[in-house]
Each structure stands twice: as C-alpha cells, then as structure tokens.
C-alpha cells in the first residue's frame, strides 16, 4: 500500500483540541503518519497524488452506543453487512450492538457467533452488548463475569427496563465485581403505559396519551 495524502480538510478532533484546515498522511501500513495544518499542498512533495477534500470535515471515527443489528433473528431489518455500510456512510467506525435479537444475546455461545459474524461481514468495530437478564425477562441476571471475559463490552436489556428495583440493585452489586458496564433504558412501564408521545402541550393538542417525564426520572433516581 502506498502512502496517501489528504489535503484541505476541516479537521475536527475534540480530544486533541483540533479544529483547523489541514491535511492527513496515511502511511504504507494504513496508519496515520501526520495530521494538522502543516500537512498542506506546499509542504508535500510535488508529483505525488493528493486528494483535495475542499473543506469537507475530517473527523475521528464516531462511536454509536446504541445500535440494533437484526442478526440473529431479524435479518430482514438489518444484518452486519448493511449495518456496516450504513455506519461507514455516516462516519461511524465503532458500534455497540444491542442484545435485543432473536434469540437474545445472553450467553457465551451467542457471543462467539456475534464476534465471528462481525469479523466476517463487517468493516467496522463491533462491540457487542449482552443482556442484563436471561432472555431480557427482567428476572435472572446473566453471567457477567464469563460474558465479560468473552469480550462483552457492556450489559443492557436494550429497549427494556429492569422494573424490579431489588433485582436491579443486586445486578449493580454483582456486576461491579467484574467491573462490568451497565446501560439501562429508563422507563417505568406503569407510568408510561398507553403513552404515545411526551406528555406536554403537543400531546394535549393532539389528544394523545402522554408519557410523563416522571416515568424516566423515577428509574434514573432509583
């Protein structure tokens, strides 16, 4: 692979406090060799091929923390290939995949499957999340330690909320032992039941049953 030169890009990198017009050199191993305003048409050798980005944004790959891959079970919605194409088109290079598949990602063998498919079909980094409870039923906690060792980056029931506060508190205690990251969708099912839209002026005007802010707050406060 030859060295590549990108010039005239609006480089945005919040971590390194960069927001400037400049360029980027990718070395023969595909790694970044230099980045910033010093990489410009004038400072580069003439005769090499340069890609002029004409002021378009050049950013570090984005991370999407909440992605639903249809695989397995809902391939008609999305699979690893289409997910990866869609992500790349939007500048997303890493995703955390939610466990709400069919079957649910709640055991070690499912993780192996995901990692294999992710590796074979996807051009982006897939960080699979596993469920907090078996089958996301909100009853029995999953094997946090074993799953984490297999490479699970986070635990969540995805679109579901653990309604039982006792179980949630035990999950947090147990998962903290292995340093497992927990993500919770905050929605109290009883308060949001029948709701179609945020509770407020618009729900009142449209005559639709609202979901009160309390439904979210109460889970977060808990």
């Amino acid at each position: 692979m030859k060295e590549k030169y990108l010039i005239n890009a609006q480089i945005i990198d919040p971590k390194n406090n960069i927001d400037e017009l400049g360029g980027l050199i990718i070395d023969s191993n595909g790694l970044i060799k230099a980045v910033g305003k010093k990489v410009s048409n004038e400072n580069l050798p003439s005769g090499v091929e340069k890609i002029d980005l004409k002021g378009k944004f050049l950013i570090p790959g984005l991370v999407d923390m909440r992605v639903f891959v249809g695989e397995p079970g809902y391939e008609y919605k999305e699979n690893f290939r289409t997910l990866s194409d869609a992500a790349l088109a939007g500048g997303v290079t890493s995703v955390v995949s939610m466990p709400n598949t069919s079957p649910i990602i709640d055991n070690v063998s499912m993780v192996d499957f995901l990692k294999r498919r992710g590796r074979d079909k996807s051009k982006i980094n897939i960080f699979p999340a596993a469920s907090l409870t078996k089958n996301t039923d909100g009853k029995i906690m999953t094997e946090f330690g074993l799953l984490k060792r297999k490479g699970i980056s986070a635990f969540t029931d995805g679109i579901k909320t653990i309604q039982n506060p006792q179980l949630m508190s035990r999950i947090m205690n147990f998962a903290s032992q292995s340093g497992s990251l927990i993500i919770q969708h905050a929605e109290d099912n009883i308060l949001s039941e029948g709701g179609l839209i945020n509770d407020g002026e618009i729900s009142t005007r449209l005559g639709l049953q609202g979901i009160p802010a309390l439904a979210e707050k109460i889970i977060v406060e808990r």
Binding site: D199, G200, E201, S203, T204, R205, G210, P212
Partner: peptide, 8 residues
C-alpha cells in the same frame, strides 16, 4: 387536567 393546558 391535561399537561400544559394553560398553553392553549
């Protein structure tokens, strides 16, 4: 009383 009814 619906939420934000005063806004009407």
């Amino acid at each position: 009383l619906p939420k934000s009814i005063e806004r009407l």
